[in-house]
């Protein structure tokens, strides 16, 4: 059974049909790419997968469970985490705290314990600190743990967002244009990091990307979206050589 199974997903904004009859099937462990021209509806698909938008039609199954139209927080608890095209960090909190917020549901103590600093507060905070630093070190961000998230350079903010998403212990990680605004060196680093987190966290990845070098370099399968509809889908090399795709998206 596929980890993510999307059937005939569709959404309308007033008269605009942003996504229509969208189908997708991702196996556990795959690294899957979602590409397409600007405004094709890629981010909208992510927003439906994470419950930020309620789809008008269709079904979404994660691990066989129907998660269509569920609340965003519950979808995260079911195993879906994401990053955003326009970075959304908790800017007024430290890098470490951003990841600790991602760990929120894995480590528990109550408000009372926290306010009166009972022993469990100290024990749990220590465990959270250790785990958060462990995750940050995968991205080489552990040295900046105390820095305010909004003071990080752009590239590191993107990495921190991935770290925070991973902290929620997801089965499926959605990355919305992780290489946007990065130079070729940073993009290369990012490709290495993505390979590393697949290994370390055993997570399945679906990513949106415009950088063709990254897409052809790491994605095993692709789906191409155009005007809200699937244009092609399959093995990366097959899809990228599809004349329809070349005409609509790649140009030349």
């Amino acid at each position: 059974m596929a980890l993510l199974e999307v059937k005939n997903l569709g959404i309308s904004f007033g008269g605009l049909r942003a996504v229509d009859e969208f189908n997708l099937s991702i196996e556990k462990g795959e690294l899957y790419g979602l590409i397409g021209p600007n405004g094709a509806g890629k981010t909208t698909v992510f927003n439906m997968l994470t419950g930020i938008y309620k789809p008008t039609d269709g079904m979404i199954y994660l691990d066989g469970k129907n998660i269509t139209g569920k609340k965003t927080a519950d979808i995260n608890k079911a195993g879906v985490a994401r990053t955003f095209q326009n970075i959304r960090l908790f800017g007024d909190q430290s890098v470490l705290d951003n990841v600790k917020i991602g760990l929120h549901n894995s480590y528990e103590y109550g408000t009372f314990t926290g306010v009166f600093r009972l022993p469990k507060y100290f024990a749990t905070e220590k465990k959270m600190d250790e785990r958060a630093l462990e995750i940050l070190s995968v991205f080489g961000l552990d040295k900046e743990a105390k820095v305010l998230a909004s003071n990080l350079p752009y590239g590191k903010q993107r990495q921190l967002e991935i770290a925070r998403a991973l902290a929620t212990n997801p089965k499926l990680l959605l990355l919305d244009e992780p290489a946007a605004g990065m130079n070729p060196n940073e993009t290369q680093d990012l490709m290495d990091t993505i390979a590393l987190i697949r290994k370390e966290f055993g997570v399945t990845i679906l990513l949106i990307e415009h950088d063709m070098k990254l897409v052809s370099g790491i994605c095993e399968k692709l789906t191409v979206l155009n005007f809200g509809r699937v244009l092609a889908s399959g093995e990366t090399s097959t899809v990228l050589n599809d004349p329809e795709v070349i005409k609509a998206y790649l140009g030349e």
């Binding site: 994470t50 419950g51 930020i52 609340k71 965003t72 927080a73 519950d74 995260n76 608890k77 985490a81 994401r82 955003f84 959304r88 960090l89 908790f90 800017g91 007024d92 909190q93 917020i101 991602g102 929120h104 549901n105 925070r164 998403a165 902290a167 929620t168």
Partner: peptide
């Protein structure tokens, strides 16, 4: 407070 949508996507 900082970002409600991001807070929801990390399960809060």
């Amino acid at each position: 407070r900082d970002n409600q949508i991001a807070a929801e996507t990390v399960g809060l």
